Amino acid sequence: MNGYVETDIKESALELIGNTPLVAFDRLYTGPGRILAKCEFMNPGASIKCRSSLHMINMARESGELKPGAPVLEVTSGNQGCGLAVVCAVLNHPLTLTMSKGNSVQRAVHMEALGATCVRVPQVEGTYGNVTLADVKAAEAEGLKMVEETGAFYVNQFNNKSNADAHYYSTGPEIWKQTGHRVDAFVATVGTAGTFTGTSRFLKEKNPEVQCYVVEPEGSQPIRGCDITKPLHLLQGSGYGCIPNIFQFEYMDGTLSVTDEEAVHYKNLIGQKEGLYVGYTSGANIAAAVKLLESGKLPKDAWVVTVLNDSGLKYSATEKM
């Protein structure tokens, strides 16, 4: 065979992170307006957290804070751990993760299949599938103890600026390009606030008129300024009952609340109408997008962009309503 033949071969799984499709949910929601969903479950770790995992590790390596081959440790609800497991496997960093036993065991299985060690920490007050801030703090305490004992690099996603920067440099620009620069609103659940803060910052820099809304579980709405009346909810990885340290109010135009029942309803509709099997926060994001479009706060032909955070395969059957 003569001549040069162009190939399209990725060097590693790291090149599979990002550049996810944006799909119209025209079957689930028929208007007025339109819902566009970013398919973050298509990242190699099956969630949006692959983006921040790669960026946080790369920044630590570039700064010299993380040496080649050095151990890494993080506290996770599962998705960040899976993303870090992808990155650390490729870059040859031993990875240890602490996670509440209330988070889906599927996530621990996923992380360990990629070579990570997952330490599942007993819950303080939650139940399986319902993780509270106290449960997260217990996992954090165990993680910090291990960091002190081992000297591992602590990723610290809740306080790491590179978490939000990952979405400023990737998620936001991708959405802007994919929509042809037409975004009327962006809505997203908040865990660490990396996705919301970074994406909203980028979109508002491009067009200050873009409306950005935080999605919170009903009864756990600290960003809205409400007392916490329901710390137990189904939205794993979000709605921890506190305002995250990297959250920035200047990029927020309002909040939307979603009940467990609404999240489950739309999670199921995404599967039945759009053929995509996703998790509970994805259902909450779509529920919130529908509420915003039906609120009259946007033009009738508005395009609302949101994210499908992770795969439904990360959840247990016992978590169903």
Rank of each mutant, 00 (worst) to 15 (best):
P44C: 11
A116K: 00
I35R: 11
C82M: 14
E11K: 11
H110T: 12
T96V: 10
L66H: 03
H110P: 01
K67A: 15
I35K: 11
I17Y: 09
A70L: 08
R107A: 00
A13I: 09
G33T: 07
S63D: 08
L36E: 06
G102H: 01
G69D: 05
S77K: 05
A46V: 14
T30L: 03
R107I: 01
E112C: 13
N103M: 08
G18T: 04
E112M: 15
C88S: 12
D26N: 15
S47F: 10
M111D: 10
M99T: 00
D26Q: 12
T96Y: 08
S77A: 15
E65N: 14
C88Y: 00
V109W: 03
A13T: 11
S63Y: 02
G78A: 09
L28R: 09
G18K: 10
L95C: 12
G31E: 02
N43S: 06
L73W: 03
A37L: 15
L97G: 03
A46L: 15
L91R: 13
M56D: 10
M42D: 01
N43E: 02
S12E: 14
L91Y: 07
A24V: 11
R61D: 04
L95V: 13
L84R: 01
S12I: 10
I35E: 13
N19Q: 12
A13M: 15
R61N: 02
L28P: 11
L36F: 04
Y29S: 08
E74G: 11
L84E: 07
C39Y: 03
R34S: 10
L14F: 01
V75F: 01
L73F: 14
P21Y: 02
F41C: 09
E62K: 15
G69I: 06
N43M: 06
A116H: 08
V86T: 13
N92Q: 15
E40D: 12
S52A: 14
H55T: 10
N79P: 06
V23A: 12
G69R: 00
K67C: 00
S63R: 15
E15T: 15
L91E: 13
E62R: 14
S47V: 14
G102A: 05
L22F: 01
G81F: 00
N19W: 00
V109G: 03
V72K: 02
L95E: 09
R34L: 14
E62F: 06
L22M: 13
I48K: 00
I57W: 07
R61L: 15
